[in-house]
Amino acid sequence: MIRFRGRVRSLGLPGAVLFAVGTGVILHVRRTLVRELRQLRRVAGAAQDAVLRPLPSRVGGLGVAAAQLSAERGAAIGGDLYEVVATEHGVRAVMGDVRGHGIGAFGTVAAVLGCFREAAYDEDDLGGVLRRLERALERHLRREHPASVAEEFVTLLLVEIRADGEMVALNCGHPWPYRMGAGGVEQLAPADPYPPLGVFPLPDVLSTVDLGHLPPGDALFLYTDGAQDARDARGRFFPLSVVLARVAREGPLAPQEVLRGVQSALVDHSQGTPADDIALLVLRNDGFMPPGVRGPARTATTHPQPTTHL
C-alpha cells in the first residue's frame, strides 16, 4: 500500500511483487558496488605498500619516520615519493613529487623509486644517481605517455648523509629541507635548484651542494610542496616553519613525534583533505652510524647550482 494525494491506492499483487523484486535488485547492486569499492581500496593500499613501502624506524644510524596525505578523499595512492637506504657511501634519501596526483601519477612514482633503489647502491656519487633517474623517467614517459611526454615532470631532492653527519644534496625543482635542533629551525637553501626532472636535460656537469652538518640529536625535515602550499578556509598558506619551530620547542625531536605534530596541524589547517598530495619525511641523527655506512674519502663538490627560470 502507498499513500498518493491523500488517498490510499493498492499496488495489487503484481505491483507489490515487482516493487519487492526491484528493491531487492537495487540493494544487491548497492552491496556489490560497496564490496568492489572496498576491494579496490585494498588493492590500491597493497600497491602503495609495495611501491612506496613503509620505512623502518632506523636506517643506518638515523631515526626515520614518513607519512603521506592524499589529495583524493579515500585514496591510498598519491603522486609523492620517498625512500631512505643505507649504502657504503652514506645514508641516501630521495623525496619527490610527480606532476598531478592520484592513480594517474602512480606509474611514474613506481618507475622513479624502482630506479633509485638500484642506483643509490651502485653509483659513487649523487650525480650518477640523478642521471640514472633521468634516464628511467624518460623511458617510462615515452612508453606510457608518448603524446604528452613534454608535459610530464618530477621534482626531486636527493640527500646523502655521511657517517660524520655531513650532508650533500642535488635538487631538481624541489623545496629545500629544514634542519631542526637545539639551535632552532632553519631552512637549508644553499643554492638555486636545477629544473624539475623531465623539463630540460640535465647539464653536462652536476655539482652537489653542501647542506652542512647534522649533529647527533638534530633532525632533517623533508617534504613536498603540498605542505607549504596547503590553504585554510580563508586562503592562508600553511605556516610550515612556525609549526616546525613549535614542535621543536615542545619536546625531543623523536621522528614520529615530529611527524605527528606536523601532520595533525596540516589536517586541521586544510580541514581534513589537502588540495595536493603531501609527503613528509623526518631523519634524525641518533649519534651512531654502523661500520657498513661510511662517508667517502673524497671531498664533496660544493659549487652553486645555476639559476634557471622556468
Rank of each mutant, 00 (worst) to 15 (best):
I2M: 05
L11R: 11
L11P: 06
G15E: 12
A16N: 11
L18I: 05
V21E: 10
T23I: 07
T23W: 02
V25M: 07
L33W: 05
R35V: 01
L40A: 12
D49P: 05
L52G: 03
R58T: 15
V59M: 12
Q68W: 03
L69S: 10
G74R: 01
G78D: 00
G78H: 00
D80Q: 04
Y82G: 03
E83S: 14
V84G: 01
V91H: 02
A93S: 06
A93Y: 09
A93I: 09
V98M: 02
R99W: 10
H101K: 13
G107Q: 03
T108G: 14
L113R: 01
Y121V: 15
V129E: 01
L130H: 01
L137M: 14
E144W: 13
P146Y: 06
S148T: 14
V159A: 02
R162Q: 08
R162A: 08
A163S: 15
D164T: 08
C172T: 15
H174F: 04
P177A: 01
P177F: 04
G181I: 08
G183D: 11
G184W: 06
E186D: 13
P193H: 00
V205C: 09
L220Y: 04
L220R: 06
F221I: 14
A227M: 02
A230C: 01
A230M: 10
D232R: 04
D232E: 14
G235P: 09
L240W: 07
V247A: 15
G251C: 12
R260P: 04
V267S: 05
D268E: 15
H269C: 05
H269E: 13
A275P: 12
A275D: 15
L280A: 07
L283S: 11
D286I: 03
G287L: 00
G287A: 09
M289I: 08
V293P: 04
P296I: 04
R298K: 12
T299N: 03
A300H: 12
P304E: 13
T308G: 11
L310Y: 14
